[in-house]
Design a protein around this nucleic acid. Structure first.
Lengths: 340, 340
DNA sequence: TTGTATGCGTTATCAT
DNA sequence: ATGATAACGCATACAA
């Protein structure tokens, strides 16, 4: 409640002197400084960040967008890890996090929302349709708002993205299956719009080609990152192609759906059919059977994104380059050697 | 970038007319209104929320504190559900969410942080030590900042809390074990400071007393909501009291620890020993064996908290009353009938 | 219906 | 070393 004016009045000095004192300027005499500090404490003074933001044009706030639309739910598979990392990194630099939630603004775009709130930078953690390069995404990318996206290939003067090395992650998964003797491997992909999905599919295809096994398009279906859709797709594939001995799903959620379907069809996992997932979400470890999967460095994704963002904010002409984080195959019990 | 001044200049009117137009005041002639609106669009105008906040003393921002200290990690077991619900509810009312992260401010309290950012209200989702009624918690409770805590018994003029009906949840769990024939039931509690822990323990004790079985203190240990600590406690108890046939853990995480220990000691769950958890976190369902547990309405906790907060903000003299949400026993496969 | 003037709490520029 | 004053972008009381 107390403002610097109140302090100034009590101390018998001007507001500018108070301001300088509170901001640790050197040109304040020791006596007045101490007096002001004492009074500030007495009045239980705290600076008003809003007023400060207005004049400094800096809010020390990082915005975050989630979900599959401009505004929507928290349906990202590892929202928690990413946001936790972002929070840690930007927090240490003195920034707070603003989660955009405002739903009753039509005509709002990422850019206008950011400008309205005057955030210093923004992290994009979108899913599904939100990852499609729409007009509003392009607008943001070309704006002067520092921006880092997770898993969306955006690039601008102060805009880039962070992703996992999905291509090589996919290949590692395939290598593992090859090592176990599998060759007839089905793939349950993500969607047709995201780079993430595309890279994982490409890894699958290339692994097959390099192994001279060849790529059979009828072994591939899209599951749209949904357990249910993956379940349906698996049934369809497996009924038509009972010769398949392994499934590679582009997400753990979908791998669960694959296993659901397989189990219902009477196959045992991994005895009859092996299954590999992607992501290594929390439930992967406790699932039955524990899922072999490609682990993404979720925390790293978030901390890299935050680090880049801070660089953009603090550096007027940053070098920009997307960050690609390595994946790691985690072998558990949903895969096993092919029985002759 | 464009301000109402720019619009005013272009339109040849005063800033107040522009302001009134943009805020849908009725006393603006149709022509000037249309002209202003057109120019606003041309200039790609958006209001500056910071400036607006300064003059209106309202930020349309809800703050959230997490973790076990004033500032710390996201270690709450269902952070995601709660925050998702809060976001939904306050979002529909036009508020955004501010996650406090700022770590480099010593001497900061919940109250000063809230004042500094001028949040309109705040949600507390703390764990561990953070739930202890410290000075800074009391300060917040007694302040005029609208505040709703989850699982912490705080009450003030614009401050209350939301919790699950832990006591009856506990009793339900015990009833289930009684129904299966168990009588020698151990309890792995939470901590000694939270009401949540206390209520669950009380439910356990009362259930035992009402059943005329009596309460054996040596059957009780604290696990501090940690899988590891619960593991250790379980070993200790089970080695001393092999007559025990069931464990009731005050959280799912701890129930996992209980099962870890039991398994290592050579007991089969649920054949030899039954185990019940509390919370129904995501992994409970996929754990092996799928965990019987007491489900908390996590989303409800968040949406009730948000609803109360909005009431406090919009109503000068709200009636205050804590909200207690019912729990629900979810029977899965970690409990079974006692073998004679 | 419109304009003028003031203030929100702070920083920053320029004097003194 | 300190003070006066303008400015940030907007809302609002009051006057016209």
């Amino acid at each position: 409640m107390a403002s610097i004016r109140d302090i100034a009045k009590r101390a018998g000095v001007s507001v500018s002197t108070v301001s300088r004192t509170l901001n640790n300027y050197s040109d304040v005499s020791k006596e007045t400084r101490e007096k002001i500090l004492r009074i500030a404490r007495e009045l239980n003074y705290f600076p008003n960040a809003v007023a400060k933001s207005l004049v400094q044009k800096k809010t020390y706030t990082i915005g975050i967008f989630f979900g599959n639309k401009v505004n929507s739910g928290f349906d990202h598979p590892f929202f928690l890890d990413v946001i936790s990392a972002v929070r840690e990194v930007v927090g240490n630099a003195g920034y707070d996090l603003l989660i955009f939630t405002n739903k009753n603004k039509e005509r709002a775009t990422y850019t206008t929302l950011c400008r309205e709130r005057s955030v210093d930078g923004v992290v994009l953690l979108l899913t599904g349709e939100g990852k499609k390069k729409t007009e509003t995404l392009t607008e943001l990318q070309e704006s002067d708002i520092p921006c880092v996206a997770i898993d969306i290939p955006m690039e601008g003067r102060v805009c880039t993205y962070v992703e996992s090395d999905n291509y090589h992650g996919s290949k590692e998964a395939m290598s593992h299956l090859f090592d176990l003797g599998h060759e007839r491997i089905a793939f349950i992909g993500g969607d047709e719009i995201s780079k993430t999905s595309f890279d994982r599919l490409r890894g699958y295809q290339d692994a097959l080609m390099e192994r001279k096994i060849g790529f059979n398009p009828t072994y591939v279906q899209l599951g749209y990152f949904s357990r249910e859709k993956a379940y349906t797709a698996t049934k369809e594939i497996m009924l038509k192609h009972p010769e398949i001995t392994a499934f590679f799903a582009a997400s753990d959620e979908m791998a669960f759906g694959v296993i659901d379907a397989l189990t219902e069809l009477g196959y045992k996992v991994p005895e009859d059919v092996s299954v590999v997932g992607f992501d290594d979400i929390k439930e992967a470890k406790t699932f039955s059977p524990p899922l072999t999967t490609v682990r993404q460095d979720k925390y790293g994704l978030g901390s890299e994104a935050a680090g880049l963002l801070l660089k953009f904010i603090e550096n007027p002409e940053p070098e920009i380059h997307p960050v690609v984080l390595p994946c790691k195959l985690v072998v558990r019990s949903s895969t096993s050697r092919l029985k002759k």
